[in-house]
Design a protein around this nucleic acid. Structure first.
Lengths: 260, 260
DNA sequence: ACCTGAACACCGTTCAAGT
DNA sequence: ACCTGAACACCGTTCAAGT
């Protein structure tokens, strides 16, 4: 017996999506996004959302099968905000850079998305549109076969991975950021770790948001350079592969890369 | 009035952490990790955990201030599983590779960590230990100033960003993976996107876990190559920076990078 | 076709009371 | 110093009943 994967995007909507009755799914999703932006993922409840729409909480279940479906819909709205230049017009590095910054900014505007990345696959039409453009971009850049997908996965991995902890940090710290408090905290936590302490001390003198942006740019250039290297086919360090890794759940950590 | 950031790691523990009374915090955390591994983040409730430990649910609040604190403690246990070679012994690429694969495997073993990355800063002693070694690694590699931290952030971003959606996919699909069903779903969702459809068709013929591992290795080599490029100081494409990006919440998307 | 309220089975957390 | 149970203020979801 197989547990079937279900998603808003893989089931038929209950209504032909053409008529215009009382509430609409679009209206509900828009209200959900507003609530999520204002109060975060924990701030969204079917009861609160119902109240906001001046209806019973349970009325929403006619438009949406579960709360998770609603989150999938809201999530895809954010993907709709992403700008991706036309891959047939712009250089692939330009496309990737614009996409990266656009995605980061969208996530920072909607911090609750950070909680969804590890929970919901992005299968909505807006997300798919972005994926399609990205795949086309890397194909036109000269990648072929699996490498097209791997390049795209690497780029989005970087964007997600850089922005998600940034959001975690922002929301933990709250809007009113006290640099002295933060510094003291880092100091305390990093006690007896000289390398980290050094970082904690210098970190204080800069606007943390600026530093985050600098880190993002540094990383983005690095990732793009690394991808370009795959493209131009330079030889050099290759070995990140650990032979026992791919399937075994807990590989022997003893293996060494091909080139030390 | 400033909302203060609180964390298990930044407050005094209630007990000198030496005596040995009834239950211990270690015992509670261990049980929590077991419950999380078995039932996921939603499967952990204070009531269930209390039952597992044969105590009242509310008893746990003597050892832990909130459920979030408990999650911070459990999270750091996972960081304790990460292997990082001694930065003074191994080449930085070796250290980074081992760390990357080790972290990915640990996350796959404890899928609930994917939900925490966007929510909790990793400030526990095990996470700090890993950060410290990583920072030392990149310093010894030749990075200096902010670049040390940027390189580390780039590497962990890649690992998190690659593994988190992998986990989302795994848990959505369930343990029993039906390739035909998955293929049909991708086909449907990617309709009218020729580039994506191509990917969906070829994807079928491979073990998805193997492909994920290949993507990870491809991306890791790319990231390491990109970082190495920063180190050797080759000139070339630089421009990922968008001048209006760092602080403005919604930058004009019109700006172009320095080099198109 | 759409909306409602009551009800079910849960939550995290507080707190007075116990030993 | 540690543990308990009752209680509060919530949850997502189901379902019979309404219009």
């Amino acid at each position: 017996m197989s547990r079937h994967f279900t998603s808003v995007w893989t089931r038929e909507p209950r209504r032909p999506a053409g008529a215009a009755p009382g509430r609409s799914r679009e209206e509900i999703v828009r209200a959900a996004v507003e609530l999520l932006d204002a109060e975060g993922l924990d701030g969204l409840s079917m009861r609160k959302l119902g109240a906001k729409l001046m209806s019973g909480a349970t009325s929403l279940y006619w438009y949406v099968a579960t709360k998770d479906e609603l989150l999938e819909l809201a999530y895809d709205e954010v993907w709709g905000e992403i700008k991706v230049p036309d891959p047939d017009e712009a250089h692939w590095r330009e496309v990737a850079s614009v996409l990266a910054h656009s995605l980061r900014q969208a996530m920072l505007r909607h911090p609750w998305t950070a909680d969804l990345i590890g929970r919901l696959p992005a299968l909505g039409p807006h997300a798919i549109e972005v994926s399609d453009r990205m795949r086309r971009t890397f194909r036109l850049a000269g990648f072929s076969g699996w490498d097209i997908d791997f390049a795209g996965a690497t780029l989005t991995a970087f964007i997600f991975g850089m922005t998600t902890p940034e959001i975690a940090w922002n929301t933990s710290m709250g809007d009113d950021f006290d640099p002295d408090e933060a510094r003291a905290m880092l100091r305390r936590v990093a006690a007896q770790h000289p390398d980290l302490l050094e970082a904690a001390d210098t970190a204080h003198y800069e606007d943390p948001r600026l530093v985050r942006a600098m880190a993002f740019d540094f990383g983005l250039v690095s990732v793009l350079d690394g991808l370009e290297r795959r493209l131009t086919g330079h030889q050099g360090h290759q070995a990140a592969r650990r032979p026992d890794d791919p399937i075994a759940p807990d590989p022997r950590p003893a293996g060494r890369p091909d080139r030390p």
